[in-house]
Design a protein around this nucleic acid. Structure first.
Lengths: 342, 342
DNA sequence: CACCTTATTGCAAACGGTTGCAATAAGGAA
DNA sequence: TTCCTTATTGCAACCGTTTGCAATAAGGTG
C-alpha cells in the first residue's frame, strides 16, 4: 500500500538535524543559516515533501475548509450556487465539504454535527423544507462558528443571509405582462403557507394594483408542478378564453401550462403570453422559449461565501449580521413577445 | 469567539482521573469499572462532549472522507452522479470533499494535490476535457491512494472505472427509430476525435447495418450544440423532405432540431421522428417531449463509490482493476410516438 | 583572557486523542 | 501472614507540525 508519505521527521533524520530546524528552514525563518536552508529546501523538493494537512489543522485548529449544507444537488439553482461558492472559495484557499440534506431535517442535523466535528472554519447553508426546529443552528452559533445562510434562511434568527427578492421578482414579471398589453392575468401560485409562494403571489397582486388593475382572487390557482397543471388542465382551459396572460410561480409550471394550451390550439404568445419564475435552463429549451425572471444562483453563492470568509477572517469583530437581498432579472423570450415568434 | 469545545483532557481534569481512563470509559473498554464508566459517560453526555475529528484523523491517518474531482457541477448528469455518490457514502459513514476542475487541467492537478494533502481515504474522479497528461494521476496511484474513475476515464491506465456504453446506447436509439418504421435516418454527430462522438456515431452505423440498411455518410452532420443547429438550419431543412428520423448525439441538439423543423411547419413525430441522447431533464420539458437514451447518473455515482469503498476497506488485497459498464436505457416519449401526440 | 553578543540549532511541549505497558491496590489462596 | 491474581487506573509515547525557550559555539570587545 501507501509508501508512507515523507514527513519532516524523516527529513530531519536523513539530514541529521532536528525537526524544528527543518520546519523553520522550509518556511524561510530568519534564524536558520543560508546553508542549512538551501540544503533542506532542495532535499525537500527532491523527495516531493508535502506537509500533512491533518497535522497542520490540528495544530492551528484551522482547516481552511468551508462546510456546505444544501437541500439538493440535482437542481439547477442549487448547483449554480455551489459553483459560485466553489470559485470564490478556491481562489481564497479554502476547500469545500458538501453535505446534501435531501430536504430531510434529521439529516440536516447530522450534517451540521459532522461539519462541527470536522472543525470546518465556517458553514454555508440553506434550510431543508422539513426543518421545523433550529436547535442545531443555535448549537453551531453557540460554538461561535461563522455561519451564513443562502436562499432559505430562518427569519427569526439574526444571522448573515443572502436571499432573493421574490416579491420584487414577481412584480417585475407581472409588470412586464402588463407593459405588453395584458389585461387579464392568471397566476399559477405556489403553496401560500410557504414564504416563496406567498411573496410571489403578493408581488403579482402589488403589480396589478400599482397599475390600477383590479386584483381578482379567482385568477389565482394553486398549481406549482407540471403534474398539477395536467390535473388542473380543465380549469385552465376554461379560463383560457377570458385571459391574455399567465404568470406562473416557477418555470416548469409555466412550461406545462404552455404545453396544455398549445395542444388545444391556443397560440403562445399570440393568444396568451406566459412568463415563469426562474428555476433553470428549462426556459431556453421550452417551445416557445419562455420569458422568465432569472435567479442568479452563481451570484448568490459568491455573495454568501464572501460574507462567510469575512466572518472567518475578521475574527471577533462582531459586526451586526447583514442580510443581502438579490434582485432577480427579467429575461424576455418568445413566450411574451407578440411580434417576433412567427 | 468559540467557547472552546470540551476535550477529553478537560473531562479528565474535572473528574480527577486520567485522560486515558476517560477515553476508554467512553468506548466501553472492559478494563474500566462500571462506576467510572457511568460517571464518565453521563458527564460527557451532559457537557455534549464530541471527539475532535482532526485529532482522530491524525492518529489513525484515516479521515473517513472521500475526495471527488468533477469537471462541472452545474450539469444535470454530473450533479446526479454526485447525488448518487453522496447517498452511499453517507450511509457508509464517509464525508465527501468536492472539487470542481472546471474542465481545467491545471486546476485538476491542484485539486488532486489538495485531496492528497488532506489525506482523503480515496478519490473519485472524472477527467477534465483539457487533461492531456496523467502525471498527477500516477502520482496518486504511486501513493497507493484508492482511486475510481467515472464517466471520463483514461483508457491507457489500468484502474477501476465506471463508464457508460455509448455505442450500445446509440444502437438502442437507432434501433428504436427503425422499429417504428423510419427508413432514412439523419445523425447529428459530435466531434469525431472524441470518444463520445465516435462511439455514438458508430452505434448508429451498427444499428443500420444490423437491420440491413445502408449506411450513408451524407446522413451524418457534425452538429452537437443548439447554436450549431441554428447555424446549419438550412442544410437540415433541405434534407427534411427525404428523411423520416433524426438521431442526435445529445438532447439539446435534438431539441434545437425540433424547434427548427417545427418553425418550418414540419410536424414531429408525424413527418420526422426525433430521438436524443440523455443529458438531463430537458427531454421532458421539450415540446413535444423528447424520446431519448437516459444515462443513469445516480447509478453511476453509486457504483463508483461502492468500488471505491471496497478498495479502501479491503486493504492491500490488490485485486485486478475492474471496469463497470452501464447500459443506458431507452425513454420513449412523444417525439417518436406517431400515434399518441394529437 | 574573561565576558558579552549574536547566530544557529535543538529540546520539549502543545494540538486531542489512543493504546501498550507498568503500577497500584484489593482480594483470595496457602 | 505472605504471596499471587486480578481488576482498575495512570504514564508516556505517538500521529506530524509549530514555536517559545534554552543551549551551544563562534566572534567581538575591553
Amino acid at each position: 500500500m501507501a509508501p508512507h508519505q515523507i514527513t519532516i521527521k524523516d527529513i530531519a533524520k536523513i539530514l541529521g538535524i532536528s525537526a524544528s530546524t527543518v520546519s523553520r528552514a522550509l518556511k524561510d525563518h530568519p534564524d536558520i543559516s543560508p546553508k542549512t536552508k538551501t540544503m533542506v529546501q532542495t532535499f525537500a523538493k527532491k523527495v516531493h515533501y508535502r506537509p500533512n494537512a491533518l497535522a497542520l489543522n490540528l495544530r492551528r485548529s484551522k482547516t481552511n475548509t468551508i462546510g456546505i449544507i444544501i437541500p439538493e444537488m440535482v437542481h439547477h439553482f442549487f448547483s449554480s450556487v455551489l459553483a459560485g461558492i466553489d470559485k470564490i472559495a478556491y481562489d481564497a484557499g479554502y476547500n469545500v465539504m458538501i453535505c446534501q440534506s435531501n430536504e430531510n431535517y434529521e439529516r440536516e442535523i447530522s450534517d451540521a454535527q459532522a461539519l462541527l466535528d470536522n472543525r470546518v472554519d465556517g458553514i454555508l447553508m440553506s434550510l431543508s423544507k422539513t426543518t421545523h426546529k433550529l436547535d442545531h443552528i443555535n448549537n453551531l452559533l453557540d460554538h461561535g462558528l461563522p455561519l451564513v445562510f443562502f436562499d432559505r434562511a430562518p427569519e427569526e434568527l439574526s444571522v448573515d443571509k443572502v436571499i432573493i427578492d421574490d416579491l420584487m421578482g414577481a412584480k417585475i414579471a407581472t409588470h412586464h405582462l402588463i407593459s405588453i398589453g395584458c389585461k387579464k392575468i392568471l397566476h399559477l401560485a405556489g403553496p401560500q403557507h410557504l414564504q416563496i409562494g406567498k411573496r410571489r403571489r403578493q408581488g403579482y397582486e402589488d403589480a396589478l394594483t400599482e397599475n390600477g388593475m383590479e386584483y381578482n382572487p379567482n385568477y389565482v390557482i394553486k398549481c406549482d408542478t407540471m403534474d398539477e397543471v395536467y390535473a388542473n388542465a380543465g380549469q385552465i382551459l376554461e379560463m383560457a378564453s377570458e385571459i391574455d396572460g399567465i404568470f406562473a410561480v416557477n418555470d416548469s409550471t409555466a412550461i406545462a401550462a404552455m404545453q396544455v394550451l398549445m395542444k388545444n390550439d391556443i397560440k403562445i404568445p399570440d393568444h396568451i403570453s406566459v412568463i415563469g419564475f426562474g428555476d433553470g435552463p428549462n426556459a431556453k429549451i421550452a417551445y416557445p422559449p419562455l420569458s422568465t425572471v432569472e435567479q442568479k444562483g452563481i451570484e448568490m453563492g459568491q455573495e454568501a461565501v464572501k460574507l462567510l470568509i469575512k466572518q472567518i477572517e475578521e475574527n471577533e469583530v462582531t459586526t451586526e449580521p447583514s442580510t443581502k437581498v438579490l434582485t432577480p432579472v427579467l429575461r424576455i423570450r418568445e413566450s411574451t413577445n407578440k411580434s417576433r415568434l412567427y
